[in-house]
């Protein structure tokens, strides 16, 4: 008996989905917009993460050592710094490496290279490039390097010159993060409300049918089952349509976006995560369809 009714509910849900094609189509479009917004936000978050990471990568402080500082002393400082909290990475650049880098950077400037040859000795200083996890930690690192024991070794710390820029950069990245979250929440809330209202209107247009079924003596489950089934179908079809549209749009726009944000390939990200994105869309689509249908139909089922 239960199986027979279950099969009938699925059948009538399927039949009603196609016979109420305009209503189904309208609801489908709204859910596709919601899922597309969700996918867009996901991709946007990815872009934002990359941009923020790129910006953060560019922030560091360098400590330059006096010309005659032995390498062991510098490595000792590096090891001391490594024990500090919040230090993410320390790169040692010896005098020789600094010179090589300098030459490479200025290989198109023969006058500068010739002047360097004339000096006959390496004028560049060994340095440590330090990256911290948080912007607020750079000051502590700089102060650590100003300790008495390091004073004879340290020639310059570039943090104090760059302090304002570093802080601004980090406040910008934090701002981007916060704005991203607020934007996502607001946009999702709007699309969810629109979806809920669309489904409510769709069911409202069929309220007389619900009343007829009640009069014939159909149970609440038998009345609401096909509507919930339609919600599931809308979720499934919406997820399929959204993933298809996203594929098309991202493959088209991704190269342009990569030109704008170097190192960011949203299409590659989409392709490598397509299965989990589809599952997310499917889950959200079905939950949205079923939940909206359930909320909308509940008021007509009061006996």
């Amino acid at each position: 008996m239960f199986t027979t009714n279950f099969v009938r509910v699925i059948k009538w849900g399927w039949v009603a989905f196609w016979r109420n094609s305009w209503v189904s189509f309208a609801t489908l479009i709204i859910v596709v917009i919601t899922l597309f917004t969700l996918t867009g936000l996901l991709i946007l978050k990815q872009v934002e993460n990359k941009v923020v990471a790129n910006l953060r990568e560019k922030v560091d402080i360098s400590v330059y050592f006096e010309q005659n500082t032995p390498e062991e002393e510098i490595l000792k400082v590096q090891s001391d710094l490594g024990e500090l909290d919040g230090v993410k990475n320390i790169e040692y650049i010896s005098k020789e490496t600094a010179l090589e880098d300098f030459k490479k950077r200025h290989q198109d400037n023969p006058i500068l290279l010739e002047s360097l040859e004339e000096i006959e000795e390496n004028p560049l200083q060994a340095s440590l490039n330090i990256k911290a996890t948080l912007a607020s930690q750079y000051e502590a690192i700089a102060k650590f390097l100003e300790r008495e024991e390091y004073k004879p070794l340290v020639a310059k710390i570039n943090y104090w010159q760059n302090q304002e820029i570093i802080n601004k950069l980090f406040s910008i990245t934090e701002g981007i993060n916060r704005a991203g979250i607020i934007f996502s929440v607001v946009l999702l809330a709007i699309t969810l409300l629109v979806t809920l209202n669309t489904v409510r209107l769709a069911i409202y247009s069929q309220r007389e049918e619900i009343e007829i079924m009640r009069l014939v003596g159909a149970s609440n489950w038998y009345i609401s089952g096909p509507f919930l089934m339609q919600g599931i179908l809308i979720g499934i079809f919406s997820a399929l349509i959204t993933i298809g549209i996203s594929w098309g749009i991202l493959s088209y726009f991704s190269p342009g976006l990569s030109g704008f944000f170097p190192g960011i390939n949203v299409f590659a990200y989409f392709q490598s995560n397509i299965f989990s994105i589809f599952l997310l869309e499917l889950g959200v689509g079905i939950i949205l369809g079923v939940l909206s249908s359930f909320i909308a139909i509940r008021r007509y089922l009061k006996i």
Partner: peptide, 15 residues
């Protein structure tokens, strides 16, 4: 309206 004559009558039997 979205069920045929047959289906409208069958509904009474189904429930």
């Amino acid at each position: 309206p979205t069920k045929t004559v047959y289906e409208n009558i069958a509904l009474a039997f189904e429930v």
